[in-house]
């Protein structure tokens, strides 16, 4: 089956090739999720460090 098989008034589809617009949209979402995940991970590192310090009694 070729791409031509999909060409009809009701099936607006491109198989395999993403347009620049779609590619940009996916990249944007991936970048957004990566940034948020990065912020969460760094925050958790700081929190776990602080919890450890408190638990071993350095901060009373």
């Amino acid at each position: 089956m070729t791409k031509e098989d999909f060409k009809s008034p009701i099936d607006v589809t491109v198989v395999g090739n993403m347009s620049a617009e779609e590619s940009r949209l996916i990249r944007e979402r991936q970048a957004g999720r990566s940034k948020v995940m990065g912020i969460i991970l760094v925050s958790l590192c700081i929190l776990f460090f602080a919890i450890t310090i408190v638990k071993i009694g350095v901060w009373g």
Binding site: K3, I10, D11, V12, V14, N17, M18, E21, E22
Partner: peptide, 28 residues
């Protein structure tokens, strides 16, 4: 070459639940 027009065609869902851009209606 065909290209998508995401702004003109609203997203629909395929049977597996993924969001798809620019594909004909699930019913069709």
């Amino acid at each position: 070459m065909d290209t998508f027009q995401p702004a003109a065609i609203p997203p629909v869902r395929n049977p597996a639940g993924y969001q798809i851009i620019g594909v004909s209606s699930p019913y069709r």
